[in-house]
Amino acid sequence: MTASAYVLEYHLVNYRRTWRASALSTLVLPLLTMLGFGIGVGGYVTAGVDGVDYLDWLVPGLIASAAVQTAIGESTWPVLSYFEWLKVYFAQAAAPLRVADIVTGHLAFMLFRVLLSAGAFLLVAAFFGTLHSLWAVAVLPISALTGLAVAAPVMAYSASVTSDSYLAILMRFAVLPMSLFSGVFFPIESLGLLRWVAYVLPLWHGVDLSRAATLGVSPGWDGLWQLLYLLGWGAAGWSLAVRRFGKRLVV
């Protein structure tokens, strides 16, 4: 465990040099989406959704979606480049670290980034008065869990490919459709049978839980199953990632 902490420390030190570059996309983009979409488009959704103002309904979905975006951003190009171009993982593997430490440490850093962007977004949301309950704080652990549920398996994917074309393919064929059809912008009930695809993917559960939290509605027992389901994605992804990393690093 302490060994993963050293790996985390490495990534944090690195981040101290580069955080400025990512600050813009972490803060400004969510803010723009909220303004452009929540307020702009929201102005035309006169009836609201499920009896809630469109902006208030949209914001928790956007936070979960931003958490997923950050998690994906951190688990794709950086992972590929640490294998292919910068060879950071190989350097770490040459130190007395186990593969699991390398994976866990980097994953911990990704969750740190997810928490940063979810936290920033949450503050902006509070400023716009879209949070209905103190339970909104629960959005932070929910974001971290949702982030884990996508970052871990995607990390395994990024460790299995050698060209960034495959990352572009993942973004377009998996991440974008998931972001657009997981109940962030409109209720998935209108998807018909396709909504089962959203149920299978992690994002919808993150959106649903976050929405329950900011609107102060109890998710009931379903909420517990959703948490466990996300955890399942994370755990399966983690063990897959350890296996893929092992294939590359221990030869």
């Binding site: 488009v41 035309y44 959704v45 009836a47 959704v49 469109y54 377009r172 064929f173 974008l176 459709p177 657009l180 059809f181 912008f185 409109f186 209108s190 998807l191």
Partner: peptide
């Protein structure tokens, strides 16, 4: 090619139902 089509279905049709 798929990207704008996905947006069209999600925003144009999905959100369109609300508008």
């Amino acid at each position: 090619f798929l990207e704008p089509v996905l947006y069209l279905f999600s925003i144009g049709i999905g959100v369109g139902q609300l508008i």
